[in-house]
Amino acid sequence: MTASGPIRAYKNSLPNRAIKAIRRDRWLFLIMLLPTAYYVLFCYYPMFGILVAFKNFMPKEGIWGSPWYGLRYMRMIFADSYFWHVFINTIVLNLANLAVTFPAPIIFALLLNEVGSLAYKKTVQTITYLPHFLSVVVIVGMINDMFNSTGIVNTIVKSLGGEQQSFLTSAGWFRPLYIGSNVWTNIGWDSIIYLAALSGVDMQLYEAARIDGAGRWKQTLHVTLPGILPTIVIMLILAMGRIMNVSFQKIWLMMNGGNQQVADVISTYVYQRGIVKSDFSYATGVNLFQSLISLFFVIITNTISRRATETSLW
């Protein structure tokens, strides 16, 4: 009788329960082994590698063995005028890009929603989704061919009596080309989410609006748009999170001596300093700064939207 107390307590003790749970879930732990290895090696180990930004990195010593450098690199980065130049470039390019590529698929979805013929609608969808699946190398390849000095666009410009433009190598044309081709690539694909939201708008609301005398345009304004607003807000938050990381890949392919002054952004700068020039610590510092600003943007947008529209990611 008296022995049962301590034995029961032992059986219920924390380490014992933990052992039991682990034994019970051993297969799940086993299954999780490889994914855990992946996350540790290729996500968390590189995060640990950010320490390089605060160290005088010597490849022979490894990340942990290299001597601490404190904030010296950070100070160098903030004093680097070219860093601020690419910083501004990144923000300008992204804001301009967002201003065009964010509303475009919404408008496209609204137009598509007004199409009565299902077959026509499907055809438009199938065709406009296609560019999303082309590689960025292919897309830039097509841009290069069309906007070349002897390309189709210049041929048309000249035949209309205009002057030949060096679209590909001029600073002034970089942003329009970059943003325009982004619209071309993604307008269809990005509209999918809004089309789904549109199909979820309550039909009775349209009925009610019509009884109140609202025309087609008023219905769109007062029923459709408010109906898909939560989706728009979520997509905007996600887009704000990406405001600091422009697609390195496309810009790297489009950049040349002629347009570098506007095309060079944080990620291309990180690549040039870090990988090409092996200036690992400096580049990692720039990268870290970029990640922190991105995180900051997501949190800010999320907070604002939670207050204003009660829609948020968390």
Partner: peptide, 17 residues
């Protein structure tokens, strides 16, 4: 898993890894 959606090491630490 979720942490990795919002934060990553970046290009250079990945390259070093």
């Amino acid at each position: 898993v979720t942490v990795t959606l919002f934060f990553s090491g970046g290009m250079v630490p990945m390259y070093l890894a």
